[in-house]
Write a protein that binds this DNA or RNA. Structure first.
Lengths: 205, 205
DNA sequence: GTCTATAAGTCGATAGAC
DNA sequence: GTCTATCGACTTATAGAC
């Protein structure tokens, strides 16, 4: 196989990712992907056979990469509060870097939640609920009396929610508050602080 | 104007709402809307001129209705904690009733955030940030020393986030935890309790 | 492998009968 | 107002030259 072909394949995938995230599964056009990738439309079918195949490749790749990036940012040591703050910061930074991805995944989840589930199964050795670092750490912290006995699952949902949702609403928020810029480091730091302080106080034993 | 015509127009709008929420702006098909509404495709154009017009009508109507339903459920009296608990319960019930709507709005917000902004301007007399009941109540509660001095804007974001996000993730969550049913009253009550307890403790002066 | 050209099908929109 | 029939534009996909 020609290394140039592999290179071109990656190029197409990168562009397809952008177009799918921008326009969605239905809105994306093979013509636009070809144009922006600087290749002919027929070449897309040569490499990926159909729009559906290309979409599946992009969707699965993005989900896998996203989960791995989050996992890499999770610290192993330290007490639960340290762990929590670092997790919040990492997660928010990742989401702020491409909120389009989260919006895309949530929208496409209507049909594609099985794919997300399969990726989680693979990454977390068959049992995401039991093996998720966050849930493991939270349970340990409760057992050790570091935090009060909340439901770890709901706690996890609460943390993810507060980290993600404002960035999904960003276009509206920036319209409502003209001085606001959700990509600004200061806003991100503010959110980390507000979320962490709320949790730290709300979880005290 | 024939009352039957108005009836048919409403029927089309109701079906169009379902199809747009299900398939999105691009994925929705005029043919499908016509079929499910039991009318001819040409009639859609007779009433609404184009797919774009029909979409705008549906989008604006849904946003307006959603905001009004939330506002109706906001209590006037009581201390901030009572207010908070009722707000959380109302908001979650509304979101749980049709998470598809929220998913749709967030996805379409890429282009449609101006519409959302216009509706908010209209409902809140030109200044949603100043006149939003939640922000007003939060500021008063801080001034009265009922809760500690957090940023009301971030507090609002946190509450909305925790109420909405889990229902956006519902398809995945139910796959991960087979016993989970996010439409079950018990899950909804659990979430209200977990969110309220976290906030009540996290906001103590 | 990469291109041009085109097939095959879909969809929004409209003309025109009733 | 409501229907049938069809146009015209667009999109995916492929055939075939190079």
């Amino acid at each position: 196989m020609n290394p140039l072909s592999t290179e071109k394949e990656k190029q197409i995938l990168a562009v397809a990712r952008d177009v799918f995230l921008e326009k969605g599964r239905q809105g994306a056009r093979m013509q636009e992907i070809a144009l922006r990738a600087g290749v002919n439309k027929a070449l897309l079918h040569y490499y990926f056979r159909s729009k559906e195949h290309l979409y599946q490749r992009v969707f699965e790749a993005e989900i896998t990469q996203f989960i791995h990036q989050i996992l890499e940012a999770i610290p192993e040591e330290g007490d639960f509060c340290q762990f929590l703050k670092i997790f919040i910061r990492s997660y928010i930074r990742r989401v702020a870097a491409s909120p389009q991805l989260v919006r895309f995944v949530l929208w496409e989840m209507r049909d594609g939640y099985q794919v997300l589930h399969q990726v989680l199964q693979r990454v977390f050795n068959g049992d995401p609920v039991k093996n998720s670092p966050f849930l493991v750490r939270a349970q340990a912290a409760i057992a050790a009396g570091e935090i009060r006995a909340v439901d770890p699952f709901h706690l996890f949902l609460n943390v993810l929610s507060m980290c993600v949702y404002p960035f999904l609403m960003a276009p509206l928020l920036e319209q409502l508050v003209p001085t606001l810029d959700v990509d600004d480091e200061r806003f991100i730091d503010q959110r980390v602080e507000e979320i962490f302080n709320l949790l730290e106080r709300g979880l005290r034993p």
